[in-house]
Design a protein around this nucleic acid. Structure first.
Length: 511
RNA sequence: GGCUGGGUAGCUCAGCUGGUGAGAGCGCACGACUCAUAAUCGUGAGGUCGAGGGUUCAAGUCCCUCCCCAGCUACCA
């Protein structure tokens, strides 16, 4: 494992609005996965980006009175700024309007064509003349006269229209896809999702249309400039493009170790995408991880609610890292979870301020007070078993990408340490000259716990944990393997600003 | 309609192939302590485990029916 490459991707976000909490939790989770792998010594390459073609982008740009390119440039800037604000440590930011991506898409189309997997077919559907585009029925509304209309152009007629375009022989990949799920049961995780997709495949696959004739904001179809590449081949190919495809050195990164996506798009990543790659003769990603969603008041967080929770407001509430912590603590990474401001506040105070922050503070304070700000050496391996057990548990669940359980394992160690302080009562030992010498052991043990916590929680709160480590003169970050024999004796220990200050009492949830 | 996952203490949730008197964290109450961010530690608080029926010596834990909630139901990314 150690030293090996680890290519992990986020789903690229559609450039049609501002980044919100739903976008954020995905990037935060992937960042935690990436940082954990780095702590394990792997050479991580983490890519995220934007999906910038398509009708909606074109329309949004028109509505704003700017060109599509200007529009996506602005959106991309906002997303990237949000990710930096949240300390997302991505290595690359790919955009589907970049030349490197267009090149990759063109090559994908050429390869799939060479495989004989495209044919001219007829796509039909509702067509809005105003939009000059096909619409799904659920995108349309009915007017007073019960006529179907596009919400953007209620005055224009919507007609059932045929269009000749390119089709991909997805149906011919059914057997190969089933074999994929047979031979690689962990291709799609968590497990339950794989069963869902398997049933979809077993139910039979239809060919999909992969080009559009009248949608100008897209990548031209190689050899048929009347068409643009439709979303599937365009968007999904970003993972290859970011690896450098079609240049030879893309094999340095590809295949990806993990595509992390929302559970709603597993079909595209676990049916369309593998089939496309098979067609193009390329290796498949090793794993796809489908995370869940945020619920609010028992229901999926809708877009309007997502916007209601203005990302910047949430960040300012307790700081960016507290938001990272709360989201990954509360929402299981392998499922859905309930979100609320009240819980955010509760967890911030009880877990970050009281349990973790106070433990760090009291520990280093005692080192300052009783040992002149120098971590003492230990005479025996006090508490090493508990630390080792916590690290082991942590690694076990983190290897399985159960981020919420990783946090839980760390916080249990913090709780344990707080109990340990009470049990040893260092202040009593300090007052008793006969016992003062014994003080080294608990103080050294506590320092090791704090150092361990700074590492275990680093994937979740990289900046705060670096600050914490610095209070014990530790490098940032301490790799997991270095934790075992870590000797802190002689290191200066000095308190810094309170890591997670308690909010003022009057700060009530703005529900 | 079909499919999937749920309905367990005020809140968020654990409870694998059925079996010690039903759990954790938070919140709450009381007590202890003082190194610390009025933090921490201990104790307690008694929830018909959605409803009804069934299988079994024994069922949140299996079967049936019903009620309720959420999500999905393929060219929207």
């Amino acid at each position: 494992m150690s030293g090996s490459r680890f290519y992990i991707t986020a789903a690229i976000d559609y450039a049609n609005g501002a980044p919100h909490i739903g976008h954020a939790i995905e990037k935060i989770g992937i960042d935690a996965m990436a940082r954990y792998r780095r702590l394990c010594g792997q050479a991580v390459h983490f890519v995220l980006g934007m999906d910038e073609h398509g009708l909606k982008v074109q329309q949004s740009a028109e509505a704003a009175g700017i060109s599509p390119q200007q529009w996506v440039d602005e959106i991309a800037t906002r997303f990237e700024a949000a990710w930096r604000r949240l300390a997302i440590g991505f290595d690359d930011f790919i955009r589907t309007t970049q030349p490197r991506h267009e090149r990759a898409v063109a090559e994908m189309v050429r390869r799939m064509a060479a495989a004989g997997d495209f044919y001219r077919g007829s796509y039909e559907g509702y067509y809005c003349v105003g939009c000059e585009a096909f619409k799904r029925e659920d995108e349309l509304v009915r007017n007073e006269r019960d006529e179907l209309r596009c919400p953007v152009h209620p005055g224009r007629e919507v007609t059932w229209t045929h269009e000749e375009n390119w089709f991909f022989r997805l149906s011919s990949y059914q057997d190969r896809l089933l074999r994929l799920f047979d031979e690689q049961p962990d291709f799609l995780q968590p497990e339950g999702r794989a069963n869902e997709i398997r049933r979809v495949i077993e139910g039979g696959l239809e060919d999909i249309s992969v080009s559009r004739a009248r949608l100008p904001w897209g990548i031209p179809w190689p050899g048929d400039p009347e068409h643009t590449v439709y979303v599937w081949i365009d968007a999904l190919t970003n993972y290859l493009a970011a690896a450098g495809f079609p240049d030879g050195d893309h094999e340095r990164l590809w295949p990806a170790d993990y595509h992390v996506i929302g559970k709603d798009i597993t079909r595209f990543h676990c049916v369309y995408w593998p089939a496309m790659l098979m067609s193009a003769g390329l290796p498949l990603p090793r794993h796809v991880w489908a995370h869940g969603f945020i619920n609010f008041g028992g229901a999926k967080l809708s877009k309007s609610e997502g916007v209601r929770f203005e990302l910047e407001e949430l960040i300012e509430r307790h700081g960016p890292e507290a938001l990272r912590y709360y989201l990954l603590r509360e929402i299981p990474w392998n499922g859905d979870g309930e979100w609320s401001l009240e819980r955010f506040d509760e967890r911030y105070v009880s877990e970050l301020a009281n349990n973790l922050g106070n433990l760090a503070n009291r520990t280093i304070s005692m080192i300052e007070r009783y040992r002149g700000g120098v971590v003492p050496g230990r005479r025996q391996e006090i508490k090493d078993q508990q630390i080792a057990a916590a690290v082991l548990r942590y690694r076990g669940v983190m290897d399985a990408n159960l981020l919420h359980q990783g946090i839980a394992a760390a916080m249990e160690l913090a709780s344990y340490a707080n109990g340990f302080v009470e049990a040893r009562a260092p202040w009593a030992q300090a007052k008793d000259p006969a016992r003062a010498a014994e003080l080294d052991d608990p103080l050294a043990a506590l320092a090791r716990v704090v150092a361990t916590l700074a590492t275990l929680l680093q994937p979740f709160m990289p900046v705060k944990m670096a600050e914490l480590g610095a209070q014990l003169s530790l490098p940032d970050p301490v790799p997991l393997d270095a934790l075992t024999g870590l000797d802190l004796a002689g290191r200066p220990g000095a308190r810094g600003p309170v890591l997670f200050p308690r909010p003022e009492q009057e700060k009530k949830p703005t529900k």
